[in-house]
């Protein structure tokens, strides 16, 4: 079995108009910048994909990565916990102009909804958000005398993931706190697309250290020296990047 694809363009070729796409990362850490940029390249060349629903913890920062995807006009709706950043201008302007939809989800609920989506659990109860505006309209049930809010699973057509190492079977490891939402999103998407800094031969990853088992992964592409969103933003970068 070999899940490697030739290049970034081939990796994102299956993402179509109107799809729900989960994008890993917490701020810049673990954000698959190169996969996002490949998707923007396809849109600029072909006008597709558009009307995407994107699931991410944030709403992009500056003018690269997720912010550039939004700026390109490809995103109809964002599902996230914290649409603010050092430079959230792209999302902020579109949101205040009523040109992009926002579903605000508490961060732990977002993580658990994605986990539930991947685990085949359609709904679960959480204490989070009980009695707040974000629980409006949601069923409440008491357990051991305390109220809990029912939340639903979250699934996606595709997930864009950043890993540190992969093997051809799709087994993955992550780097430091770049792990965050990535392993959960791998489980919750029909087509999980991974950029890995290194692809090792079969057996190159000790089974004891695998974080995401290859079963959850569909496509892998090697991106040896991935850019960091924070570095790009500090340099004032705007996508498309100058060579």
């Amino acid at each position: 079995m070999d899940k490697r694809v030739a290049d970034l363009a081939a990796a994102v070729a299956g993402i179509e108009d109107g799809m729900t796409v989960m994008i890993g990362g917490f701020g810049g850490a673990g954000s698959p910048i190169e996969l996002i940029h490949a998707l923007i390249d396809r849109f600029r060349a072909t006008g597709s994909p558009r009307n995407l629903t994107v699931v991410n913890n944030n709403a992009g920062n500056g003018h690269v990565g997720l912010a550039a995807l939004i700026e390109a006009g490809m995103v109809r709706k964002l599902i996230c916990s914290f649409p603010r950043s050092a430079d959230p201008v792209v999302f902020t302007e579109l949101y205040l102009a009523g040109k992009i939809e926002l579903e605000l989800v508490p961060q732990g609920t977002l993580a658990e909804r994605i986990r539930a989506g991947g685990a085949g659990i359609p709904a679960f109860y959480t204490p989070t958000s009980y009695g707040t505006d974000l629980a409006k309209g949601k069923p409440v049930e008491e357990f051991e005398g305390r109220p809990y809010v029912r939340e639903r699973w979250l699934k996606a057509d595709a997930a864009l993931i950043k890993a540190e190492t992969a093997d051809p079977q799709g087994n993955l490891t992550y780097r430091a706190a770049a792990r965050n939402f990535n392993p959960l999103m791998c489980m919750a998407a029909k087509e999980t697309i991974v950029q890995a800094s290194r692809i090792l031969p079969p057996g190159g990853i000790d089974p004891e250290t695998v974080v995401t088992p290859g079963l959850f992964v569909r496509k892998i592409v090697e991106v040896p020296h991935p850019r960091q969103e924070e570095d790009l933003n500090r340099a004032g970068a705007v996508y498309p990047l100058e060579a």
């Binding site: 916990s81 649409p83 959230p88 508490p106 609920t109």
Partner: peptide, 12 residues
Amino acid sequence: VPAVGGAMDLVH
């Protein structure tokens, strides 16, 4: 722009 992050989780 509303933003909640982990605040609603951390109080429980």
